[in-house]
Design a protein around this nucleic acid. Structure first.
Lengths: 194, 194
DNA sequence: TGTCTAGTAGACAAACCTGTCTGCTCTTAA
DNA sequence: TTAAGAGCAGACAGGTTTGTCTACTAGACA
């Protein structure tokens, strides 16, 4: 099998530019609020090129969600903690890190889900996939932490995570890091077994 | 001051029809996804009448939010509990009641906020007002319940409320009522003082 | 009878949306 | 040298958006 020069970057430069531009615009202003024309203009790409890689706008939105999911996983993969409990705390701390960023506008998955009422829509399915992955991750860590009911506690941690993402965006509490710590410790137990 | 016949209903029938129709459509399909033409058609109202009562679409959206807020307060006002703690539990139980309704699509305030990136937008301000009202309500109940740190606990209850609203919509857990109870009791303390 | 108000019906403008299609240039590989 | 693929530029179609404006109807009241 011979190498094709165009395969060197795996994804074409034009496609990457489209996806990067769409990621920034969709996150900052919402999916319905950003049109194709604006994306191709800011990405410096021809319309025909856009429709070659993304046959419909919804497919770009789906790629946007998967892109956000990939980036979110990468952030979590970088964490190196000494214990399962420390890993959970570090994951929740990412919310505070994100909220401290300049253009922070809440959770991209929650924001996008609000714009897609139909539960069976491919975009919603991509969001569900990410949420399922995150819940499974938390449940695994709870098992390693010796949780007596990892299923229920994973659900409660998911509730806490979503609620903190909402709070960090809509309410912007003064001491977000402290609120995160208090919330998580109340769920895991302050000085629980190991 | 003489009574005007047109004041009998306080708000005109046409205006009410517009707001009711918009409330249903905005909640079910999202704000950006529903156009003026559709609202006036389903409300059976002339375009001029619409623009007489709502000079711009955003003013209708603001009225929609305030309408939802009014309805939400009415639900909570109906609660008659024996203690502050029971009141809090009853308020959280409203989430399960709402989620059991046929056309449930999550929290109207969270969904609308996701469509308005600008924090200073009148629609966002109306959402903030409702959130502030609800937080103050919870904090008052916590004080009555003898909470030692009602400020922090009100923040955590808000986190739980938002998280449960998200979960009830996106994840639809099998036993939502049990998840709500476990989450709230973990925050208030299972068999705490009083 | 005459006037005022609320409302209906619908044309219209100007912008914007998604998606298709034609024609051109440039690079790379055979 | 030539052929193919990648990309650029932009016109175009058909629909939808918000918002304005004109012309008409029906009821209340003085």
């Amino acid at each position: 099998m011979v190498d094709h020069a165009t395969d060197i970057g795996r994804a074409s430069a034009a496609r990457s530019r489209i996806l990067d531009t769409a990621t920034n615009l969709f996150y900052a202003e919402g999916v319905h609020a950003v049109g194709i024309d604006r994306i191709i203009a800011e990405a410096g790409v021809a319309k025909a090129t856009f429709y070659k890689y993304f046959p419909a706008k919804d497919e770009l939105v789906r790629a946007y969600i998967q892109n956000q999911s990939r980036q979110g996983r990468a952030m979590i993969d970088k964490i190196s903690a000494r214990s399962a409990r420390d890993s959970i705390l570090a994951i929740f701390d990412l919310v505070a890190d994100a909220a401290a960023q300049p253009g922070y506008r809440g959770c991209p998955f929650l924001n996008a889900a609000a714009e897609y009422p139909d539960q069976s829509h491919p975009v919603r399915q991509a969001i569900d996939e990410h949420r399922q992955w995150k819940r499974d991750l938390l449940r695994g860590l709870l098992v390693a932490d010796g949780s007596s009911d990892s299923e229920t506690t994973a659900d409660i941690l998911t509730v806490a995570s979503d609620g903190l993402l909402i709070a960090s965006h809509l309410d912007r509490p003064a001491n977000l890091r402290r609120l995160i710590l208090e919330t998580v410790l109340q769920i895991l137990g302050p000085l629980a077994d190991k």
